[in-house]
């Protein structure tokens, strides 16, 4: 694949390699009439080059805000960066201004969104919007770019590549629009692609197709990927490492196979149970209760009210406790097991 940057690299990143993207103790809050919303609290996240990370959580868990804050896409106000660091290739992004961030956006970190059709301007043809972005980043004439554009669109399973360039966003299906937006992200040659719920608003066939494309991208290119979803099944196919978020915090993280085989946090266990049963039929498992109000978080573990295993220590917020190589969970049960064992 000459159009997609460097030659294929081994999928698994070496342990201890310098991270491509690193967030440390990131805290983001929103002003609201109901009080300050603690959207993201003390989130630390590392993405190594060529690595694929899945972030899973319900809506309101802070997964989207975490991703958006990586390239400072949050509207501010009401969003406020309270603390923490964001480093991309060793560069501290929090010291950057809007102009410096533009270098990172698209070129360093590409993003695709949930509703791809809405992420294109309804007033322009798709080709014009691709051309605009490429002109911005590469300053080469459209004519010279065109072969690469068509090749990339075809790589993204768009058979009628020339035709799609002539269409308006409302004239293509959601699935095609999402593949065009992936193609556009690839054309700018980012080091990292953040995909925020890329399949959520698609029909089943398009979901399969888009996930297949992301999987192929992972296997054939050196692109690092952050895949955000509320659905564990979506992440399972692609991510090497999984991060589970709940009420603005990371509650569990670890290698994908470990998270799916032996989840340690009761919330992850619940998510997994509902995800598995949906695919295997039978009665639907549902987590009891609802997530807490982020503007008025109760003290202690945020999951306490919905947790079947809650016990006395849960009135204090547990730290992320180690649960194996590269595996950690934010649960007092781990401390108790360690003490027992």
């Amino acid at each position: 694949m000459t159009v997609l940057g460097p030659a294929p690299v081994p999928a698994r990143a070496a342990e201890g390699e310098a991270p491509l993207l690193e967030a440390a103790n990131l805290t983001v809050r929103f002003g609201s009439p109901a009080g300050e919303v603690h959207a993201v609290e003390d989130v630390s996240l590392r993405v190594a080059p060529h690595e694929s990370v899945g972030i899973v959580g319900e809506s309101g868990s802070g997964k989207t805000v975490t991703c958006m804050s990586m390239t400072w896409l949050l509207p501010s106000p009401p969003a406020r960066y309270v603390g923490g660091h964001i480093r991309f290739k060793g560069e501290e992004l929090r010291r950057n201004d809007e102009a410096q961030m533009r270098r990172i956006r698209g070129r360093g970190i590409g993003m695709i969104f949930q509703n791809a059709r809405l992420s294109f301007n309804p007033a322009y043809r798709l080709g014009a919007q691709i051309a605009e972005v490429l002109r911005m980043h590469f300053r080469t004439p459209w004519r010279a770019q065109l072969p690469r554009v068509l090749e990339t669109l075809r790589y993204c399973n768009i058979a009628d590549a020339e035709g799609v360039l002539q269409r308006y966003p409302h004239e293509v299906s959601g699935g095609v629009a999402q593949r065009v937006s992936i193609a556009l992200a690839l054309l700018i040659r980012p080091d990292l692609l953040i995909a925020d719920e890329p399949t959520t608003s698609l029909d089943l066939l398009s979901q399969i197709e888009v996930l297949g494309l992301l999987e192929r991208l992972r296997a054939e290119t050196g692109l690092a990927l952050v895949l955000v979803s509320h659905d564990l099944n979506v992440v399972r196919r692609i991510a090497e490492r999984v991060v589970i978020m709940y009420a603005g915090r990371i509650v569990e993280e670890g290698p994908a196979h470990e998270i799916f085989a032996a989840p340690r946090h009761p919330y992850t266990q619940g998510l997994l149970a509902s995800a598995l049963q949906r695919t295997e039929g039978g009665r639907l498992y549902e987590l009891p209760g609802t997530p807490p109000d982020l503007a008025a978080l109760p003290p202690g573990c945020s999951f306490r009210a919905r947790c079947a295993h809650a016990f006395a220590p849960c009135t204090s917020m547990p730290p992320l406790l180690p649960a194996g190589a590269g595996h950690a969970a934010r649960c007092h049960l781990l401390a108790r097991e360690a003490a027992d064992g």
């Binding site: 270098r103 992420s119 294109f120 911005m136």
Partner: peptide
């Protein structure tokens, strides 16, 4: 609108 956010995420300058 999402397309303005997307334009920003693709690195387009504010005036655009």
């Amino acid at each position: 609108q999402p397309y303005v956010l997307a334009a920003r995420a693709r690195g387009l300058p504010r005036w655009r």
